[in-house]
Simulated assay, not measured.
Amino acid sequence: MQKDCPECGEKIIGRADKKFCSDYCRNAFNNKLNKDSKNLVRNINNRLRKNYRILEELNPKEKTKTTKSRLISKGFDFQFFTSIYTTKAGTVYYFVYDQGYLPLENEYYALVKRNS
């Protein structure tokens, strides 16, 4: 039984369970299949990376304080974070990987680094 490559239509030679004629066709087929979801993931990862770099730049000594306007001026996006940590007292920290921030009064933020 002859099978054709779903990407380019060429005859497949080799193992009986082979689905594509080459690695190129396999990759091209799967990239087309996952294109929309990959763009979403790529955009979110780019925002998380940018937020992480901003927190890391503003918090070189693992604990500091900054303003909301300073974060925003550097391009920080408060909608993107990787986890939330709530203390026993009910204080809520937002983390981008190991860099975190805590909203304080008067639009100030405490920046912290989580020790691993």
Rank of each mutant, 00 (worst) to 15 (best):
52 Y>V: 00
96 V>Q: 01
81 F>N: 00
108 Y>T: 06
70 R>E: 04
29 F>S: 02
60 P>G: 07
32 K>G: 05
18 K>A: 10
74 K>G: 05
48 L>C: 00
103 P>Q: 06
24 Y>I: 06
53 R>T: 08
58 L>Q: 06
54 I>Y: 00
20 F>I: 07
23 D>A: 15
8 C>E: 04
1 M>T: 13
50 K>I: 13
65 K>E: 04
69 S>C: 07
15 R>C: 13
5 C>F: 00
87 T>N: 07
93 Y>F: 11
35 K>P: 09
97 Y>T: 03
38 K>L: 13
76 F>H: 01
17 D>N: 07
68 K>I: 08
70 R>W: 09
115 N>G: 11
94 Y>D: 03
109 Y>Q: 06
115 N>A: 10
6 P>Y: 11
111 L>Q: 00
78 F>T: 04
36 D>C: 13
87 T>Q: 08
21 C>T: 04
11 K>T: 08
81 F>D: 00
39 N>M: 12
104 L>C: 04
10 E>L: 01
11 K>D: 03
73 S>G: 09
85 Y>C: 09
113 K>T: 07
63 K>F: 15
71 L>C: 03
98 D>L: 08
94 Y>K: 02
91 T>I: 15
59 N>T: 02
68 K>R: 10
51 N>T: 09
35 K>N: 05
33 L>V: 02
22 S>F: 03
10 E>Y: 07
50 K>G: 10
110 A>T: 12
101 Y>S: 02
104 L>D: 07
98 D>I: 10
12 I>G: 01
106 N>F: 14
28 A>V: 07
92 V>F: 04
99 Q>H: 14
18 K>T: 09
103 P>W: 11
96 V>F: 05
15 R>H: 10
29 F>D: 04
114 R>N: 03
29 F>R: 05
40 L>T: 12
105 E>Q: 08
19 K>I: 13
110 A>G: 14
76 F>N: 04
109 Y>M: 03
106 N>E: 11
62 E>N: 13
107 E>G: 08
76 F>G: 01
6 P>T: 04
4 D>L: 15
34 N>D: 07
95 F>G: 06
113 K>D: 01
16 A>Y: 14
46 N>Q: 09
106 N>S: 12
66 T>Y: 11
98 D>A: 13
39 N>R: 15
85 Y>F: 15
77 D>A: 09
67 T>L: 09
20 F>M: 05
52 Y>H: 07
45 N>K: 05
77 D>Q: 08
8 C>S: 02
28 A>W: 02
20 F>C: 02
43 N>Y: 11
11 K>S: 03
106 N>C: 12
107 E>V: 07
45 N>D: 12
34 N>V: 01
48 L>A: 07
35 K>Y: 14
73 S>Y: 11
1 M>R: 15
109 Y>G: 00
62 E>L: 15
107 E>W: 11
96 V>M: 11
93 Y>N: 04
30 N>Q: 05
100 G>D: 00
67 T>D: 09
3 K>C: 08
27 N>F: 11
87 T>A: 03
80 F>A: 12
64 T>M: 04
42 R>P: 06
12 I>Y: 06
51 N>R: 03
96 V>K: 01
62 E>W: 14
